[in-house]
Amino acid sequence: MVTDKRDEHLSEAQLQAYLDKDAALDRKWADKHLGNCPHCRQALSTYKQLYRGLADEAGFMLSANFVNSVTARVEAEKNYRFDHLENGLMVLLGLVALASILVFTDWSSALMEYFRSGSISLVPSFVKDLPLLSEGRWHLVLFALLALSAVGLVDKMLVQMRHR
């Protein structure tokens, strides 16, 4: 790009290369030429002024509380994400719980028995009527309790992450 035509004025490319300190330009020759050539000195001076103008920062100002505004937005976005994560987890667990209940219990016959007897307040007898418990499958109850504990733990972790 920076050609070296020694018998002519510095080209636009050479003038820019001179100010960019481009190693491809023969700087000694350029200095010598600039020393003898007012035309090129003037062109270089215009470029120098242009370069100063290009580096001028006037008008490039952010507000004084920019950093705090960004931090506040990051926190808000983080909370928004956690809210969604937490809500999604809750919905998922709700569905799992519903599916488990439907799989492991015989709700239809248990409810029918209740409506027949009309004694909805008798919770212990309701529990006793559930096929799951009456059949002695306590390990499933234990599993459910462990699952609930795991949910509690995950929720706690989410809360901790949010605070951090």
Partner: peptide, 8 residues
């Protein structure tokens, strides 16, 4: 290069 030349 082109932008600076034009601006100059």
């Amino acid at each position: 290069f082109r932008a600076r030349k034009l601006l100059k």
